[in-house]
Design a protein around this nucleic acid. Structure first.
Lengths: 249, 249
DNA sequence: CTCCAACCCTGACGCAAGGTCAAGGTCAAC
DNA sequence: GTTGACCTTGACCTTGCGTCAGGGTTGGAG
């Protein structure tokens, strides 16, 4: 009869694997010869090959055990199951292939295509890569913290990029990155931005994640920090005025 | 910034997974807030999603680590590699699907098609399933112990099935399974079989695995055991006679 | 102000499916 | 009689997390 090594070779597995199957009770322990070696018959080879066929297909060993002792009808049903699972896996892998191919290309993977389009559009308008990256990060944070506002923001953003004044301010901000915080040009820029914000002010705009985005922007440049501080200050003043007006009426 | 739970949700993984990546150094540990919570920025989300994209494609975490810090050229090469690997896996799974589909159908999986054809032919000639199964086992043992003789044996076996006398003996043996070991019909059968063996005797026929096969056959039926014993005995006698003739010459 | 659920923290063990030593006993051949 | 290729048991290692234990934090409701 066969030794363990011959059996293993016949089924294309390692000796260790056969012993493992004995250990978990998947393959019955055979008789031993005088020296304690395991001795296998042809049935063991058949069983082992059946086990491997299922195991190679990804069936957990625990389930194989049950399968081998199942009625033909149940066995056939299980096989159908396993086959469906295999097809699902194949589709999965094909999808991963697609994503892997995109992996060289940065953010396309992590953001919805509409947002990617916006970022590309900004690049096309001459916005610096640095600024685009901040924008990208803000979208990622938005998506993580408050996903349901994303579609509305996409519309707003595209509308903004249709408006020449908005685009002008984007580019101006962009250039101000390296300016000294005391540069007089900043004063005019802050005035313009404040006017823009007043014009476009809407409820809900001061959502939590915006603070985080502002914080990141401020970190990046002293000039931008001044801009953010000034705008927050003026927005506070306007809110104050509205409250006063509300009390008067 | 993001908490670990938000980061995990953003990338579609569990919190445990993120911590695991910290543990193995795949994702850098971020700053902690006052209460010791980890706080993540958008870059972490990007990194994590890239990691998952590779991990989902089956790249081991250890390799991902190296990949993320690789030069674009090497990265691209590795991606090509991984893609090829994925395609290979897809083909593998398709092959497993094929084999799984055959699994309901018994021996087709473990034996070469020529042998399966022989077994089918035996069934067609009216040989019992029990006998066919013994035959199948003997082929499996042959294949495991002495594979290079299989092609020759296939030719021999097919020649045997072309010969009416051989087929008659097959069927006669088959019917004798349940006979009493003292049944007088056995004597005639043994004579016929011995004549057949004398006629077809060839060198190498008494290979090791044949003893094993005989042992299995003997186990199955007392009548067969008598047949095997008698034939072995007569073969021994013939060999003796040949040796004596050799000394005389 | 307290309570509760839903978070977060570290640390440790568990899982499949074997791989890989270690420390020996056997077998076959030269 | 000594290699070298087998076989034996036993025990720890691996990957990629899951899950539990035993806590601390946060934020909103009552």
């Amino acid at each position: 009869m066969l030794t363990i090594g011959q059996l293993a070779a016949a089924a294309g597995v390692t000796v260790r694997t056969v012993r493992h199957y004995h250990h978990v009770g998947l393959l019955p322990e055979p008789e031993r010869d005088a020296s304690g070696y395991r001795r296998y018959g042809a049935q063991a080879a058949v069983d082992l090959i059946r086990i491997r066929t299922l195991a190679d297909a990804g069936v957990p060993l625990a389930r194989i055990d049950a399968l081998l002792h199942a009625q033909p009808a149940q066995f056939a049903a299980a096989i159908t199951d396993i086959d469906a699972e295999l097809r699902r896996k194949i589709d999965q892998l094909a999808e991963y292939r697609r994503r892997i191919a995109e992996l060289a290309g940065g953010e396309r993977l992590v953001l919805p295509p509409e947002v990617v389009a916006i970022l590309d559009r900004m690049r096309g308008l001459g916005v610096s890569e640095r600024r685009v990256r901040l924008e990208r990060d803000s979208w990622i944070l938005m998506q993580a913290l408050d996903p349901q506002v994303v579609p509305q923001r996409i519309r707003d953003k595209n509308a903004g990029l249709d408006d020449p004044e908005t685009v002008r301010l984007y580019l101006a901000c962009d250039q101000s990155f390296d300016w000294d915080p005391n540069d007089p040009r900043l004063d005019r820029l802050i005035d313009d931005l404040d006017a823009w914000e007043t014009k476009h002010e809407r409820d809900g705009d001061r959502a939590g994640y915006l603070k985080l985005v502002s914080a990141r922007i401020s970190e990046a440049s002293p000039a931008w920090q001044r801009i953010v501080d000034a705008l927050v200050h003026r927005a506070g003043q306007r809110a104050e005025q509205r409250r006063a007006a509300g009390r008067e009426s």
